[in-house]
Amino acid sequence: MHPILKLVAQRVALGILLLWAASVLIFVGTQILPGDVAQSILGQAATPQSLANLRAELGLNEPPVARYFAWLGGVLTGDLGTSLTNGRDIATAMGGRLWNTLFLAFWTALIAVPTAILLGLVAVRYQGRWPDKLISGTTLATVSVPEFLLGYIAVFFLAVQYRVFPSISTVYDSMSLGEKLNAIALPIIVLTLTILGHMMRMTRAAILNVMQSAYIETAELKGLGGFAVIARHAFPNAIAPVINVVMLNLAYLVVGVVVVEVVFVYPGMGQYLVDHVAKRDVPVVQACGLVFAAVYIGMNLLADVMSILANPRLRHPK
């Protein structure tokens, strides 16, 4: 077998193992309460009868290990259980929302990734001069402010003061793509700002690292201009760390999306999770936690695999 295939296969197997362990952790996380889950869901005013009913519904009379495997078996066959609060099937309720979240994340990535790389290149080209300082300073400010505050600052100026975009992102199926994009413009801007800073800084650092190599000096000495050196010689060699950073930030997007969806009342996974945590709807929370963990682990796995593929030494073994 080609060594690179073997490496990739190992990473994928490791990812699957990690996902399984994460499912155990999520399950345990909802069982560690020192008392009774049913009591904590219903509160102090619960009658013994309703407690007994809820216990039976949650399967609390069975041992935890049996409950875990019942849950895992359901998840593997696509059955995520039913919601406690409204009795609806979780998988169907989640489907549309997952799609909405991915839609938001996709457009954010489409805007944020090229912008971050471009800004990183500009910062390297004018290293130490005002464009570099301006970009670095602005991105330091954006990473110091939590997402939800960035969100309200955007609403205050772009939706209320200047009325450019709507402050609430309602989307439904009958909207055209343009209308949908207009509705989610503000969440896209906020999410882009939150991941842009980190991505741009790491791109800058990765390219600066390569800029110290001897072949860069050769390229400069043979008379190539500033941007040509960076684009033709430095960037291709910095691509592996840059890809890694991009993927890690896209994984971070999964977390950022939770908060931003709440700010803009966007009907996605994050809003769904937060609503049901407040209602103490354990099956929904478990299912959402697992989906988020799966996406996060998947993105990290993809980052690993892509940096293996981007390494020419591994691609062409001796």
Partner: peptide, 19 residues
């Protein structure tokens, strides 16, 4: 490694749903 494979905010929300 395992703890860090789940985003902190998500895991905190999962735990706070019963605590």
């Amino acid at each position: 490694d395992l703890m860090m494979a789940i985003p902190s905010l998500i895991f905190a929300l999962v735990v706070l749903s019963v605590m």
